[in-house]
Design a protein around this nucleic acid. Structure first.
Lengths: 159, 159
DNA sequence: GAACTGTTTGAGACTGAGTCTCAATGTACG
DNA sequence: CGTACATTGAGACTCAGTCTCAAACAGTTC
């Protein structure tokens, strides 16, 4: 895949070694696109149990620095990592009951962000924008207070 | 203070007991407005060392349920709690270098959020919207890669 | 290909933030 | 007062992530 080759190059350009462990972590991350750090650890170790937890975390941090993955904290269970390299920028809408996540794009919000930041003289580096609510299905089957972390499952961007 | 009396009433209306511990946690939280959970633990225990860590966390969770405090994770150090009861809704702009936080309001973003949510048939419950960047001062004294969590200090909403 | 040098690794101890357990204590109310 | 339930303190525990450090690895120079 193109993306794999591209990221390998990014790693080399970074001036760090492209080791077998880093490659494996990269391959497993790209295979999932959405995962928690511990899921990735498990997945990598399923392929090669000799890879240490710390190495997966280190490689993940590297991918994060390179802008290949982003970290999302939805406040429901462990933070979620997402491979964003090569994807258009998007934000998230999450159902607090069933955990469904919808990725959406909204250029008008981005424009307002630029304006806000300018108002305070800031230079914008990044942002997070998350909407929480009830999906149509959960609105119908609504329980007054379920409150327990739902399993996350992501619906890829529709627009 | 009005706010204190109001929240006490909220707690009672909740059907739970208004114990000395809960009152103390409430008073210390209202005294700070912005704090991490561990700061609050320390502060409460400075007043009364017999209060357990767990009790502070339990009271904080209660205040959160009541909508009195909100939890913010800025990805720089520990999550930050904010007393939002009685305050107009606002979002945050943070300097990733010095940790300054500016609270801003932007009704036009809220309108767009309503629109987005409608598009997917969701019922909006809450949102987080955080902008990260460099404040004017840090743009001038910019280091290529400081990367270490700055101390947080909040500038109250200007608008 | 040996020696040197800096990088990366695995293993596991450690940390920080928060949660859980459970016996003891407190409190509302019949 | 007595019962029943809510709340608490103390500390063990969990979970996600970080740190340490000796060993292994990879370039580079000879």
């Amino acid at each position: 895949m193109k993306r794999y080759i591209f990221v390998r190059q990014l790693i080399r350009d970074r001036g760090v070694r492209l080791t077998a462990q880093r490659e494996l972590v990269l391959r497993r991350a790209l295979a999932h696109l959405h995962f928690t750090a511990e899921q990735l650890v498990e997945d990598v170790r399923r392929v090669d149990p000799s890879v240490a937890r710390a190495s997966v975390y280190r490689a993940l941090a590297l991918l994060h620095e390179l802008g290949v993955v982003e970290k999302h904290d939805f406040h429901y269970g462990a933070p979620n990592y997402e491979v964003t390299e090569g994807k258009a920028h998007h934000d998230h809408l999450m159902c607090t009951q069933c955990g469904e996540i919808i990725e959406f794009q909204e250029p008008r919000v981005e424009r307002l962000q630029a304006e806000i930041v300018k108002r305070y003289g800031y230079q914008l580096l990044s942002h997070t924008h998350k909407l929480y609510g009830l999906c149509p299905a959960c609105q119908r089957t609504q329980k007054p207070h379920s409150a327990k972390p739902p399993a996350l499952h992501v619906t890829e961007m529709v627009s």
